[in-house]
């Protein structure tokens, strides 16, 4: 059974755990360093990226997670998780700085501009429900990064080898296909 950690400092932790368990994985809540042992993959969930960053620093999790990403541990970042993974942020200092993408925060405006839409993603499937909440988007990608999906001209799903970054929240819907793609083809 695959052991997948979910960073559990704040945010949509429960939803990711339920989805991973439904896909037959063992889901581990990661709150401290020791929870990072023997994982086959790690999910950085949606939430508030500034809050998560403060807590990553205070509980000495930033360096260990960065180290694991550099050693090749598969990671999926959704929304705030994508912001944590990015090597570059527009108008902000990066956090883990491991995924070769440049990310813009709150790039669709405030909460009243948050939306849902159905997406066709060739590598994943058709009619995938995508919920964007004060979402970021990927402004630019490095040469080894594969763009998996765009919406209205903005990159919203991309893969940099073992790292998958997603602007929206697959964990908020009942559709498991994005998480399944991560678990079955990357972990």
């Amino acid at each position: 059974m695959k052991r997948i950690g979910v960073l559990a400092l704040q945010g949509a932790v429960r939803e990711h755990i339920q989805m991973l368990e439904a896909l037959g994985c063992e889901a581990i809540q990661v709150k401290q360093r020791k929870d990072l042992e023997n994982l086959d993959g790690l999910v950085l969930p949606g939430g508030e990226s500034t809050t998560m960053r403060k807590l990553l620093d205070r509980f000495d999790l930033l360096e260990p997670i960065r180290g694991l990403a550099q050693q090749g541990l598969p990671m999926l970042g959704t929304c705030a998780g994508l912001i944590l993974l990015a090597k570059d942020l527009i108008e902000d200092e990066p956090h883990l700085a491991v995924m070769d993408v440049t990310v813009a925060r709150n790039s669709y405006g405030r909460q009243v501009n948050s939306f849902e839409v159905q997406l066709d993603i060739p590598k994943v499937g058709v009619g995938i429900p995508a919920v964007f909440i004060r979402a970021p988007h990927i402004e630019a990608v490095g040469k080894d990064v594969e763009i998996l999906a765009q919406h209205e001209g903005k990159i919203i799903l991309a893969q940099d080898g073992h790292l998958l970054g997603c602007s929206f929240h697959p964990e908020l819907t009942e559709d498991t296909r994005i998480i399944e793609y991560f678990v079955s083809s990357m972990v």
Binding site: G11, T51, H169
Partner: peptide, 9 residues
């Protein structure tokens, strides 16, 4: 969903 993102905070 917006409120779900605030959980634990």
């Amino acid at each position: 969903g917006m409120a779900e993102m605030q959980k634990g905070g």
